[in-house]
């Protein structure tokens, strides 16, 4: 019998302690960020989808070597190049120029192997995270066009 009553006593006490904790929490400042009205700054290493980087003249740094394409586990990168005639030190030469760089973001696992494998520092992760759509095609990015657009915006 004594056990019965002491259990009621300790049981009620444990419930009161719990309520005390939740009550105190009630007056703590809110920590929820009201997205999309408030947003957080992405950290420097945040991995959004990859993007091409430009050199000083605004052209893509990429030399279309295809290393990233081969490194990618999911085969999301497809690129193409055209060869154009350029003049280097007075001599006519052929140069590979990137003509297409598409990313299929539906398959990308953001592993970073493409960024790591590039010896020219031509790609990096973007800070893009506001991505939502009901259509798959919206996640097929034409990165070359994206680079051109952002370069135009900058100049």
């Amino acid at each position: 019998m004594g056990g019965y009553f002491s259990e009621i006593f300790y049981g009620s006490k444990s419930l009161l302690i719990g309520m005390g904790i939740t009550f105190r929490e009630f007056f703590k400042p809110t920590v929820t960020v009201q997205y999309p009205y408030q947003t957080l700054k992405m950290t420097a290493r945040y991995r959004g989808h990859i993007e091409l980087l430009a050199d000083e003249e605004g052209n893509p740094k990429c030399v279309a070597c295809g290393m990233c394409q081969r490194a990618c586990p999911s085969g999301c990168i497809s690129l193409d190049s055209v060869s154009v005639d350029v003049e280097v030190d007075g001599k006519a030469k052929k140069k590979k120029v990137l003509s297409k760089y598409d990313l299929d973001f539906t398959k990308c696992s953001l592993c970073g192997q493409c960024v790591e494998s590039c010896n020219f520092g031509a790609i990096d992760f973007s800070k893009e995270y506001n991505l939502a759509s009901t259509r798959k095609e919206d996640f097929h990015f034409n990165l070359l066009q994206r680079l051109k657009r952002s370069e135009e915006k900058n100049t």
Partner: peptide, 9 residues
Amino acid sequence: DALVTGNII
């Protein structure tokens, strides 16, 4: 500990 482990229920 106080909130959950000690809780009688």
